[in-house]
């Protein structure tokens, strides 16, 4: 059940996937709704009234200077001072260097959270992202909403 006009109509429970290997042997990917993207890529469509259903690949070797933010729905002052507060790419690079995790996927993934059609989101963006993460042979994914 959902309230009139609500986007939320699903009651499905998504089962957790058990880890198949120790963290130190696992390849980690990162999926974020922060709207972070490499400079020079097509900016996320933040003005569209129904949202943006695309994602951007963010090289896991990127530096904050290589990246920019396109979104309208959360304060970005802190992120402009230190991108890691919303998109902790340097912290994840440190975890890989220190062998806390086995490694990072070549790319991380980013999109914006303003998507007004949850069915379209599930059919397109979620499927595309899941395929991309699987192609990167990720053992585990860190998911971070903005």
């Amino acid at each position: 059940m959902s309230a009139i006009g609500s986007m939320i109509t699903k009651s499905d429970v998504v089962p957790l996937a058990p880890m198949r290997r120790p963290l130190a042997d696992s390849r980690l990917t990162f999926v974020s709704t922060a709207g972070v993207q490499p400079i020079g890529t097509l900016p996320f469509d933040v003005v569209h009234p129904v949202g943006d259903y695309t994602f951007r690949r963010v090289p896991s070797s990127a530096t904050p200077a290589d990246l920019e933010i396109h979104q309208l729905k959360y304060p970005t002052d802190g992120a402009h001072r230190d991108l890691n507060v919303i998109f902790p790419i340097e912290r994840l690079q440190e975890l890989a260097r220190e062998n806390v995790v086995g490694g990072l996927t070549q790319d991380f993934f980013s999109f914006i959270g303003y998507n007004m059609d949850p069915d379209l989101l599930e059919r397109t963006l979620a499927e595309d992202l899941a395929r991309a993460v699987a192609d990167e042979q990720a053992d585990l994914a860190l998911l971070a909403p903005a």
Partner: peptide, 11 residues
């Protein structure tokens, strides 16, 4: 362009 930006983020 008006200089009065109410949104939290960036275009």
């Amino acid at each position: 362009q008006s200089g009065e930006w109410i949104h939290d983020g960036d275009l």
